[in-house]
Design a protein around this nucleic acid. Sequence first.
DNA 1: CAATTAAGATAGTATTACTATCGTTTTAGT
DNA 2: ACTAAAACGATAGTAATACTATCTTAATTG
Lengths: 229, 229
Amino acid sequence: MEDLLSTVDIKVNEKLFLKNPTSSELGMRIVNFGISMIQEVGFENFTFKKLAARIETTEASIYRYFECKHSFLLYLINWYWGMIEYRLLIETANIDDPIRKLYKSLHVITSVPNPENELVFQRELSLKSLVINESAKIYRTKAVDKENEDGAYSVYKSIVARIVELIVAINPNYPYPAMLISTIIESSNHQRFFKDHLPKLTNTVSNKDAFEHFALDLINKTLEINGKR
Amino acid sequence: MEDLLSTVDIKVNEKLFLKNPTSSELGMRIVNFGISMIQEVGFENFTFKKLAARIETTEASIYRYFECKHSFLLYLINWYWGMIEYRLLIETANIDDPIRKLYKSLHVITSVPNPENELVFQRELSLKSLVINESAKIYRTKAVDKENEDGAYSVYKSIVARIVELIVAINPNYPYPAMLISTIIESSNHQRFFKDHLPKLTNTVSNKDAFEHFALDLINKTLEINGKR
DNA sequence: CAATTAAGATAGTATTACTATCGTTTTAGT
DNA sequence: ACTAAAACGATAGTAATACTATCTTAATTG
């Protein structure tokens, strides 16, 4: 894969920002340093004031880009899923067999990218651990219905819908395709979190990505896919 | 099942409170009204000050029981899992077949209890939706390791370990028992959340608990359990 | 009946999550 | 080159949050 990635502009739902951070250098600094600061201190200890000090701007300036810190997190996670959807599109474009397409899709969605093996967005790498650690916090609030109306979860839903189509093509009788795929996506995040913090809640296999094997086995057996490809 | 439940005292890790709320009437009011208030306004909008006003006490008095609102949530969720572990113990005690034991355990752990069919703790009922909506928030990235050391997740881990044993008895070759069961538990919560707020991420089946069927199918196929019991 | 404990009353603090205003600099269009 | 608009910095302010501290009174226990 060539480096078309760096020139591609990931579109994020316009309701998630007041002023597009990609439109200015300050905006980009807010996003880039915001990502690393959230990773350093955790989302609950992250404030716009601290970020402003770090990038030598003011709190007020950051508020010109984002309404509140929660929509900043939503924005980042949407950017992440936007990149994943884009990769999904290009990396499965030339695959016809739905089973191989599903395997590849699962890999794109759930794997922790290894920059030595595959070319990925630089930002995807830095966002991955943020998604693992913080994404469970975005949904479960009283604001979820309003945010959903505003399209805050539409990329995520569209990715799930895309994989659901593949599952239906592979096994039209399986009754829970959306449940299966959203379970795997969510599980990918929390199992990776467990691995680092609550290892008794997960399993590891030496030198392998245990989660990917687990997920593949799960998919093969639940959808009754037999044989290797 | 008789009403031994109301007389049973669920033990919660002592590091999660400063003064045991079960030891006084005020403590019980804090817990009972705290549960309903968190459900009404959501955990982020819940404050000890509001709770104090509701139960006609003072903020300072609540702080004599709980160090902070986060440990209050941890306490409640631990109480929930304590009840589940207790139910697990008594409801599977007289079952010998590990497969039937596993099925029963899964039901206890993941089902939404129906008070018309089964006798459950009153508090379990009121805590269930709190666990569904808020439990993803307890894993605060930066504090999780310290809390884990203090035993804040030990009941949860012990429940997972208990089911892992059953899985090993059923299919000793399955390599990911802990992953499978913790995935199902976490999925139970977020799928029920999706059902209410992001229905495109889940599937429903009329008049049935779709999640339980999904989980049962998953378990049967991944562990290669064939035949009905 | 004294001593301890529990709880109410009140005050105070640092921080958070913003909003508002105003002046200066930069950029864009003509 | 000039003007208008937009962007940004600087500063101030606010209500609410998440606590801590202290003091007094009421209830319980030995």
